[in-house]
Structures are given as C-alpha cells and as structure tokens.
C-alpha cells in the first residue's frame, strides 16, 4: 500500500492505495467524486477524463500512486462555488450538448482543455480534439456546437436545433 496526497479541486486530500489502484478508482471510491465515469477498459471512451497538473488525462489509465503530489481537477470542480455553471457547462445546457449525461463529464473536461490551448477552434479542430471522447447519444452535433459557442463564436448559422 502506498500513501498518497494530492490536491483535488483545490482541496488537499490524502489516502492509502494499492499499487494497482487507478486514479479514477481513487476519485470515485475513496473521494466519492462519482462524476468521473468509467465507460471502457481500453482507454478510448474518455468518460473518465480529468485534468492532472493542468492537462487532460484519462483517469482510468493512470495509477493513483503516479498522481501523488499532483493537482487534479474533476467535473465537480468546474462550476463556481455558488453552483453557477462555467461558460462551457452553460453552453452544453444551452445547446443541448448532452442527453444521458454519462460521457458529459469527460466531454466537458476535454473541451475545457481544448479551449485553454486553442481559444477559438474551428469546427474541424473541435471534432479532431474530441477523438478520445465517445458519445453515443448526441451524434456530436450539439456537443461541437456548444464548444464553438463557449469559445464565443457565432453558432447561429449551424443547423438549428
């Protein structure tokens, strides 16, 4: 067992984990931050995406022990303290960028990373950046639209609702 400590959504946390404990398990089970989801076991669906030291990472493909000392941000840390949604989260709601909600936390975390790297992405850049996030409900139309809208671009010309 390994003692680990990290900062999660701005709060210092610590725990004791096995070598084989994945970061996503530590978040979901030890910290009860269940917004980070597990949708596959081959590191492809992206439902588990979180930020580690400022960049997006698949929490199902990183050992908790390897995240010792890291600064981690999850979907639970994306809204303001008073519950106000971030502009990106709000864009997902405004443009119906989610249905069942299961892939949504990973989509939001990936999209946030994109907009940090590339504040005004093109449609093609958005679609390419979502390569590691699978959604089965939306057909991506409204996810892409929401991300473009969150970047401040006019999406009124994109086929409507």
């Amino acid at each position: 067992m390994t003692e680990i400590q990290m900062t999660v959504n701005g709060k210092a946390v610590r725990g004791t984990v096995e070598g084989r404990t994945l970061l996503v398990n530590f978040l979901r089970e030890d910290l009860r931050l269940t917004g980070t989801h597990v949708g596959c076991d081959t590191s492809q669906c992206g439902a588990c995406t979180v930020h580690v030291n400022g960049v997006s990472v698949k929490a199902c493909t990183m050992l908790a022990a390897d995240a010792d000392g890291a600064d981690v941000r999850t979907i639970e840390g994306m809204a303001a303290a008073d519950g106000t949604l971030s502009a990106l989260q709000q864009a997902f709601q405004d443009h119906h960028g989610l249905q069942c909600g299961f892939c949504t936390p990973g989509m939001v975390m990936t999209a946030a990373a994109l907009l940090k790297e590339n504040p005004k992405p093109t449609e093609a850049e958005v679609r390419h950046y979502l390569e590691g996030n699978i959604c089965r409900c939306t057909g991506y139309h409204n996810i892409v639209k929401a991300i473009l809208a969150a970047s401040g671009q006019d999406v009124s010309a994109i086929a409507a609702e």
């Binding site: 931050l33 269940t34 917004g35 980070t36 989801h37 999850t74 979907i75 639970e76 994306m78 809204a79 519950g83 949604l85 989260q89 997902f92 709601q93 405004d94 119906h96 989610l98 069942c100 909600g101 299961f102 949504t104 936390p105 939001v108």
Partner: peptide, 15 residues
Amino acid sequence: KRREDVRFLTGAGNY
C-alpha cells in the same frame, strides 16, 4: 432547456 443537465454537467448525476 433541460433541467436534468445541471446535475449531469456538475458530476452530480446518480448512476
């Protein structure tokens, strides 16, 4: 707008 979105967008869904 969908009211359920708020919980899904904040990691508060209950799956």
